Amino acid sequence: METNKDLQNKIDSTLNAIDAIESVNVSPFFKDKTMQRLFAEKDEPVTTWSWFSPKLQLATLVCVIVLNIIAFSEISKSNYDENINDFAETYGLSVSTDSSILN
Rank of each mutant, 00 (worst) to 15 (best):
I101F: 13
N4C: 09
K10E: 04
W51I: 13
G92L: 15
V24K: 08
L56Q: 15
L15S: 12
V24T: 14
K33H: 07
F29R: 00
D43Y: 05
R37H: 01
A17K: 10
D12V: 00
N103R: 08
I21K: 06
T14A: 09
K77Q: 06
E89D: 00
D81G: 12
L38Q: 11
N9M: 09
S76N: 15
L56S: 15
A40C: 06
N4R: 06
M1H: 12
T97H: 13
L38C: 08
S100N: 14
I75R: 09
T3Q: 13
I101K: 09
F29A: 07
V26Y: 05
N9G: 11
N16T: 02
V24D: 10
E74F: 07
R37P: 05
E44I: 06
L102A: 02
K77P: 03
K10Y: 01
A17E: 06
I101G: 12
A20I: 02
N68M: 15
P54L: 03
W51Q: 12
I11M: 07
W51G: 13
N85V: 00
K33W: 08
N79D: 02
L61K: 14
D43T: 06
P28H: 02
A20M: 00
K5F: 07
S13D: 13
K55V: 05
S27A: 13
E74T: 02
P54N: 06
N103D: 14
A17P: 01
L67D: 10
T97V: 13
L58Q: 13
D43V: 09
L93A: 12
